[in-house]
Write a protein that binds this DNA or RNA. Structure first.
Lengths: 190, 190
DNA sequence: GTCTATAATTTGATAGAC
DNA sequence: GTCTATCAAATTATAGAC
């Protein structure tokens, strides 16, 4: 396991593959990602990609699980003693604004969620886990108000839906307005 | 052109194919729809589907254009003399709630929008046209307030994003809350 | 780990009979 | 309009050499 990532157990090349797969799925969906294309992306042959990830369904699950972990790390733990609710929300808004503006890509969870009815079960399960994790984080971020989970789902819905509009219409600035509206939810009455 | 739909020029079998293709795309995306599967859906062979729609890209464009027309017809013209803003919004909310609840499918425009970065240009163009049409309708529905288009984009974002959550997590009731929040937008200050 | 070679299947698409 | 037959290409995946 030379050059491995000790925090996840993936080798350096496996991580290259995961990153390439993430971009391909976020661009065109699960079916639009092929071993051949991934191989070209990372400079090896398709059969060698199978060495790292024997089955496509498990590769897909690995990609979305890694994405869930990456986003969790970027958001950090919820700490309402140190940080305001609004600043917590701002973190997620920043993540999504940046990727729409810089790469023109939607959220991986959004793409796989949209396709979840047709995905191999391990991938669909990992997509569900992504959303339950994100909803859990944001529910905590909204504090102890009784409508926290409802607000969290609403906020995530706003961001995911607007991302699709922003990428489709090539209007990344829509994410700024969406972020503002999400932050205004903090002032909503219970 | 026996048994044809004189309003669109499509034969009865062509419409069967379009309907089957719509469902397949809304379930798993554009790449998840194949001529073979469509043929089985409508009881003919794949080569016969090619008779009706020679190329997949043009079939995809036809599906989303038909969807745009169907939704426009379901929403009806905007008439703020006869109908309130809220009742206009309710129409779209009802459409989306019904399909999530009854078929567990997201909006076709949402799916193709998500994949638009990777779609054949005719399909991507038709997906953009869907959203500009829907945004136009809803902007008109919000009346002559200066933030009408911003509100329209926000409302559509809410509905599309929540549909993905509702279908992924198999929680169709989320669409009810989303509809309520959309209708509350009417009371927002400019 | 990566390669070549290959298998088995699926895919979009065409030609031509009926 | 639908069929059979066929094609070329792409797909996921495996076996075995290096």
């Amino acid at each position: 396991m030379a050059m491995s990532d000790y925090s996840t157990g993936y080798s350096a090349k496996a991580i290259e593959i995961l990153e390439a797969a993430e971009i391909r799925i976020r661009r065109g969906g699960f079916e639009a990602m092929s071993y051949r294309d991934l191989a070209a992306d990372v400079g090896i042959k398709a059969a060698s990609v199978h060495y790292h990830f024997p089955q496509k369904a498990l590769l897909g699950a690995a990609v979305i699980n890694r994405y869930t972990e990456k986003l969790s790390k970027a958001l950090g733990p919820v700490d309402l003693q140190q940080t305001t609710v609004t600043e917590h929300l701002q973190r997620l808004c920043n993540c999504y604004l940046a990727t729409v503006r810089n790469e023109g890509l939607i959220c991986l969870g959004c793409m796989l969620g949209a396709e979840s009815r047709d995905l191999p079960e391990p991938v669909a399960a990992a997509a569900r886990h992504f959303f339950t994790t994100l909803i859990g984080w944001m529910t905590a971020a909204f504090g102890d108000r009784t409508d926290a989970e409802s607000l969290a789902i609403h906020a995530i819905g706003i961001l995911q839906g607007t991302m699709i509009l922003a990428v489709t219409l090539e209007r990344p600035e829509l994410m700024i307005a969406a972020g503002d509206r999400v932050k205004q939810l903090v002032m909503s009455s219970e």
